[in-house]
Design a protein around this nucleic acid. Sequence first.
DNA 1: TTAAAAATAGAACATTCGGGCTATTTGTAG
DNA 2: CTACAAATAGCCCGAATGTTCTATTTTTAA
Lengths: 194, 194
Amino acid sequence: MMLTNSRKFQVVGEYEQAEPLLEDFPDVTPDVVLMDIGLPGISGIEAASRLKREYPYVQIIMLTVYDDDEKVFQAICAGASGYVSKNVNAEKLVEAVEDAFNGGTPISPHIASKVLQMFKDNLPTKNVSYSLTKRELKVLEHLVQGDDYKTIADKLFLSNYTVRAHTRNIYDKLHVHSKSQAVAKALKENLLPA
Amino acid sequence: MMLTNSRKFQVVGEYEQAEPLLEDFPDVTPDVVLMDIGLPGISGIEAASRLKREYPYVQIIMLTVYDDDEKVFQAICAGASGYVSKNVNAEKLVEAVEDAFNGGTPISPHIASKVLQMFKDNLPTKNVSYSLTKRELKVLEHLVQGDDYKTIADKLFLSNYTVRAHTRNIYDKLHVHSKSQAVAKALKENLLPA
DNA sequence: TTAAAAATAGAACATTCGGGCTATTTGTAG
DNA sequence: CTACAAATAGCCCGAATGTTCTATTTTTAA
């Protein structure tokens, strides 16, 4: 109702479930889809994912009462173009549809907080400095690639004794005692320059 | 001007540069700060970062004409609570300030697109299935922790021969030939359940 | 210009690892 | 019930690794 009253666009279909929508879609071809996250049958997220896969141009706005991280996360991955709280007024909803149509991503401030928080959480951890030298970093890079000493030596034009010496120093600085530990630490703590 | 006309809040200060703001801040103590990203002297991002560090409660909205990933990224890291395009109308701006004050994160749809795109780019690569068995996954977990065969055997109450059998199977499935390679692949491709 | 840090190279030795095998027991899907 | 996959366990051997050393040359910082 909120949308039907708007003159800016036309409501071409309404569905209680995802299945019939997916079936009819090729015929109705809307520009923007408003999708409830919690649908009976196929979930809104799954439906969004399928829609996007088959009709990449369609803009999908997720309507949601949930704000738990997992749902938001999944919705993002599904390729939705907007995340709007269910209890918005008509005006906001109309705006959101317009924004989505114009290639923007309308997000309710409350949900945006979630997204940013997740984003920060996913950020590579701050490069705790173990003060590895340039050479040591270089060797570490190769260790992460799974090269053995001899291979590294060849690639860096070094004696394999030297490579072993560097590795030893790396182990000391990282407080580890094996290649796998060093690799794990390097990757988990993002010690290598991107 | 856009804001001064609003009755919903009070403009307690205006600054052309960040330095005097930082200096005055303890006296004016605003709830919400609107910050231009491209300031002369200390950049808006740096200023936001400092403000947040010293006064974590303050809500900062970045006003920006830039939409390049790097700027948006930095702003997020600086802890800003909103990212609004400079060319918004008064109404939107007032809303943004309210949202921020209420703990939300107002983001212009255009900028939100950027954020989500970055988010997706940072996502762990899709879990390509190497069809590792439960046991193999368990062993892989320990390999990532840097345990040697004997240690893993002890922890899982297995013969170290069994652990080696599992690692061989893991190597086959991941197409690798060493612990470090396996660890690298496991971490890079997120093969382990979080 | 001198002292310290980094990079290089080497040796010896015990331990671990990787790969090629075989084989039994336990689940599990038809 | 019965194949078949998974999990378990074992052996051998050569190659790679981890550790403990020493030592020379090159860079860098003071």
